[in-house]
Design a binder for these strands. Structure first.
Length: 517
DNA sequence: TTCCGACAGTGGGGTCGCAAT
DNA sequence: ATTGCGACCCCACTATCGGAA
């Protein structure tokens, strides 16, 4: 069924779209991997990056400045599928270039040109891709296995190269061209971001210790922005968790790196805005400061950033990723002055660990990250090496409305509008949540909500008589410019419904306000 | 045979920069 | 001056597959 395979620039977009559709139809992961690997086996070298990128749900250009609004009215589709991967890719690069320098009209024209060259099947695919919602049940995790299968290289080797390179299409193309030996060419490179190691979570300190094994290292979880600092001589770069370069936004960090005794290093840490008394500002303050690109010099006077390092990936030109945590810590401790190190305790005692947790929270931080002593720096996976623990607050709130869900939640009322009781009468909305719902609960609440529906609907939101009380877990209360009470819940999720409670027994806005302080 | 690790999906609040209004 | 959009900072949780135990 394929067209001319192997010829340069010959792979059609429709071939990739058909594979994506087959992947969507196939629930089994191994089946998905099979479909993807089959395509990878027949793409030319200059198309491999594009195909891998599209089929793992991202664009080679990363973002091109096109969102849902730009995709609202599109031209009529073509009947014949003639677009090739390379021509589509070239147009997207043009769109990105235009987005970078003004004129929405010019961008819109190019987007129209792109879509006018696609069949309706291709248009749908491209829309989902641009939205970042491919929804085919395969992203990087599955694509890694597909690359391994198609290239014959072991999947740990593919994963390892991805860690070091940070971009799967490049790794996949190299593997397809040169197999396992090509993957060994990927090395840690100072100045190029490494995929950061991530943490899984546990409900409490004891559970985290059990997962990590004892003794374990406990570190304060700082509520700021994750940063990876690179230094080569006097050249410094700082990357975020998604590998974006934010060097100009965080001069304090660049200066801190330049003061260190090693001039060839890669360190992992967190930046946060601290008040003069050393306590953390709310996350919003740190996020605003770290994402400001204008007037940085003035902003840093008012809102200085502090860095806390917690890991060393390379020091004095030596790569440390494969060393156990304890060895990396040793190097970190003799490279970084104590005041720039994340507070840390090694223990096998649950009581001591819980005390340290309470101390971190009392100091205004998020909680702890519990780390296994032997774990290497295994980037990109949320394994058992690092486990975060945070305190959990709960409130009994009233469901004010619900929104229809998408994808696997299509036809289900999914997203809840949550209100606290106003002692003066009525309810004050504090935000929404869709988290914590099982399929069973989703089905139940859809039926129940439709019985309680009242008032006007915009076709998307169903307003309810305020009768249902639901117990909500959340991480904290933040200032809100959006909601009427000036407050919103951070990371709200459903724990359970409270059929035993009437709405007049729900928590009040005053209770919520007292939690914001 | 059961258990559990890893993945993908489903969306949340907030902020900044920029273009259009 | 204000508003809308896109991008990105933080993220929790459930369902599912398939290898580990």
């Amino acid at each position: 069924m394929s067209a001319t395979c192997g010829n340069i620039g010959s792979v059609l977009l429709i071939e990739v779209v058909r594979v994506s559709e087959a992947v969507t139809r196939t629930p089994a992961r191994l089946g998905k991997i099979g479909h993807l690997a089959e395509l990878l086996g027949r793409v030319g070298p200059d198309e491999a990056e594009i195909a891998i990128s599209y089929l793992s749900g991202e664009l080679p250009q990363r973002q091109v400045g096109v969102g849902w609004r730009t995709l609202e009215d599109l031209p009529q589709p073509k009947l014949a599928a003639t677009a090739t991967l390379t021509t589509v890719d070239a147009l997207l690069s043009k769109i990105k270039a235009v987005s970078g320098q003004g004129s929405q009209a010019a961008r819109k024209a190019l987007v129209s040109e792109l879509f006018a060259g696609l069949t309706s099947q291709e248009q749908q695919f491209m829309r989902r891709l641009l939205h970042g919602e491919l929804r085919q049940g395969a992203l990087d995790g599955v694509m890694i296995e597909a690359v391994a299968k198609a290239s014959g290289a072991p999947s740990p080797d593919v994963r390892r190269a991805l860690t070091l390179r940070g971009w799967l299409p490049a790794v996949g193309a190299a593997a397809l061209a040169g197999g396992a030996s090509a993957l060994r060419e990927f090395k840690l490179e100072v100045g190029r971001a490494v995929a950061p190691m991530l943490a899984s979570s546990a409900p409490n300190v004891a559970a985290a210790l059990q997962k990590a094994g004892t003794p374990a290292a406990l570190e304060w979880k700082i509520d700021g922005i994750r940063v990876q600092g690179h230094r080569s001589g006097s050249d410094v770069r700082v990357f975020t968790r998604t590998l974006d370069d934010i060097t100009p936004q965080v001069p304090e960090l660049a200066e801190a790196l330049l003061r260190l005794p090693s001039d060839d290093l890669v360190l992992d840490g967190e930046v946060i805005a601290l008040r003069p008394d050393g306590r953390p500002h709310p996350f919003q303050v740190t996020a605003g400061r770290a994402s400001s690109r204008t007037n940085v010099a003035a902003l840093r006077e008012d809102t200085p950033l502090t860095v806390f390092f917690f890991d060393a990936l390379r020091v004095d030109g030596t790569d440390l990723l494969d060393l156990p945590y304890t060895d990396r810590q040793e190097v970190l401790a003799r490279t970084v002055p104590a005041e720039l190190l994340t507070p840390r305790l090694v223990t096998d005692d649950v009581r001591a660990a819980e005390h340290f947790f309470a101390e971190a929270v009392r100091a205004g931080h998020e909680g702890l990250v519990v780390k296994s002593m032997a774990a290497p720096y295994a980037a990109g996976r949320r394994g058992a090496g690092w486990i975060k623990v945070k305190p959990r607050h709960t409130l009994d709130l009233v469901v004010l409305a619900a929104e229809w869900g998408h994808g696997r939640r299509e036809g289900k009322l999914s997203n809840l509008h949550l209100g606290a009781r106003d002692p003066g009468g009525g309810y004050v909305m504090l935000g929404k949540t869709f988290k914590g719902l099982t399929d069973e609960l989703l089905a139940w609440q859809t039926t129940r909500f439709l019985e309680l529906a009242e008032g006007p609907t915009d076709g998307w939101t169903v307003r309810l008589r305020p009768e249902l009380v639901v117990e909500i877990a959340f991480d904290g209360v933040q200032r809100s410019p959006r909601y009427p009470g000036g407050m919103a819940l951070r990371f709200a999720r459903v724990l359970r419904y409270r059929p035993d409670k009437r709405p007049d027994q729900a928590d009040t806005v005053d209770t919520v306000r007292s939690l914001m302080l």
